[in-house]
Structure formats: structure tokens, C-alpha cells
């Protein structure tokens, strides 16, 4: 899923404080799982903004709402009227939702309340970790199911580097060395000999480097 973190409150306030009306709009799927951008968080953030507006004597009407997904047209039906009438929207979606709305409501300012941080999982309640960078050419089949692109800080395809120490990465004792994990997995799978297969040069044109990506199902 997509993980995001709410921006510092001051940064959010600075973006929106000059409007007379603001809709604080949650996105109740990915970023709700990490308790940052769901409809519940939209309600809380709206309350905080109202309190700040009162404190500062700023005249701004703040309403909160939300939908299940801000990245697909069909989910917007129930809130269409509200959004059309909004002077500005503070979106708690990831960067995708913010852009989707900006394209949908061409004359309405849409502000991001979150920093979209990564594609990750929930390793335990309240703890999210990056697992994928959508590089466009998955190598998990040869790395024992551990991604070197997102989990090795040098994204080495033939790791580990010389900085791997006691299973940890050279940049932080709190970070697992991805290549230690690869080696451990290959060993568990009885495939440690595969370690010596040299991984070829990566085709980064399938990644961000190749420009914005898209694909279209011809039958739809």
C-alpha cells in the first residue's frame, strides 16, 4: 500500500489560511491504514484547523469529508456537490489523489496534507516499512523475495557492499542490510549457490528514469 505522513501542522496552516472556505478531504484506503489520511484523520485535522483559525482570529469556514479513494472517478459521486462548491480542498490522499482531484476540479486549489513517503507494509501495528519502488522490472524471483531496489540503500544488484555489519546497513544500526536478508533467504531456500549468479545491468528505462509510465488495457 501507499504510505504517507501528515505534514507539519504549521506547513499545512500556511498553505490554507488565506481561504474563506476549505474542505478537508480524507482518502479512506491506503493512507487510512497508516492513520494519516483517512476520513477520521480528516475530521481531526479539520478540528485542529478550526481551533487555530479561532486562535488567530482568521475567518475561514472549514468542513470535513472524505471518500474511499481519491484516485478513481466513481468514488466521487457522493461528494460531488460539496467539492464543486469548495473554494479550496486540503486533500489527505497520497500525491496521486491530490493530482487526480486537481485534474478533476480544474479551478479549485487542492493542497496536500500529507507527504507521500513510500510503498510499504504493516510489519506490526503502527509500524510501516518500505518494500517496493515500483521500478517496473521486478527481480524478487532471483533475490529470494527481498527487494534490493527499495531495501538496499545503494540499490545494489550484486551486494552486499563492504559496509554490511552484523546484519545491519552501514547507514544505520536500525536498518537491516537487504543483502544479509537475501543471503539468509537463499540459504533457507537451499539456493545459496544462486548468490554467485551475476545480476545484469538494470534497465532503468522501465523505472522513473524512462519518464511517467502508464499502461492501457485495450479490451476495456
Amino acid at each position: 500500500m501507499i504510505v504517507g505522513e501528515q505534514k507539519p501542522f504549521e506547513e499545512i496552516w500556511e498553505m490554507v489560511k488565506d481561504h474563506k472556505q476549505l474542505t478537508v478531504f480524507g482518502c479512506n484506503t491506503c493512507v487510512a491504514v497508516c492513520h494519516q489520511g483517512g476520513n477520521k484523520e480528516a475530521g481531526i485535522l479539520a478540528s485542529q484547523l478550526r481551533m487555530r483559525a479561532t486562535q488567530d482570529g482568521v475567518d475561514i469556514e472549514i468542513v470535513d469529508s472524505g471518500i474511499e479513494r481519491q484516485c478513481e472517478h466513481e468514488f466521487f459521486t457522493s461528494t460531488e456537490d460539496l467539492l464543486v462548491k469548495s473554494e479550496a480542498v486540503l486533500s489527505l490522499a497520497c500525491g496521486i489523489g491530490v493530482q487526480f482531484m486537481a485534474e478533476k476540479y480544474k479551478k479549485t486549489p487542492i493542497y496536500p496534507a500529507l507527504n507521500t513517503t513510500f510503498l510499504g507494509d504493516v510489519i506490526e501495528s503502527g509500524h510501516y516499512t518500505e518494500k517496493c519502488q515500483a521500478c517496473g522490472d521486478c527481480v524478487l524471483g532471483v533475490t529470494g523475495g527481498v527487494c534490493p531496489v527499495s531495501r538496499c540503500c545503494k540499490r545494489l544488484f550484486n551486494g552486499p557492499c563492504g559496509g554490511s555489519s552484523d546484519g545491519k546497513c552501514e547507514i544505520s544500526k536500525d536498518l537491516d542490510c537487504a543483502w544479509q536478508l537475501v543471503v539468509d533467504r537463499l540459504e533457507a531456500l537451499g539456493k545459496i549457490d544462486d548468490y554467485e549468479k551475476v545480476q545484469p545491468l538494470k534497465d532503468w528505462s522501465k523505472d522513473r528514469a524512462g519518464g511517467p509510465r502508464s499502461f492501457k488495457l485495450e479490451d476495456f
Binding site: K154, R155, F157, N158, G163, V198, L201, W204
Partner: peptide, 28 residues
Amino acid sequence: LSGDHQSFGDNPQAQNVFDLDSMQLVQT
């Protein structure tokens, strides 16, 4: 060489490249 991670240096905010790794540079 791969090179030390940029977080150790004077520009920890820098983008890193790692288009190739050190072995692939040897091959190159």
C-alpha cells in the same frame, strides 16, 4: 567501487545514482 553512502558526507541531501553496481562497473 560502490562508494560510501552520501549520508556520511557533506551533502546528505544529495540524490544517489547507483545506476550500476561496482561489479557491473568492472564488467563495463
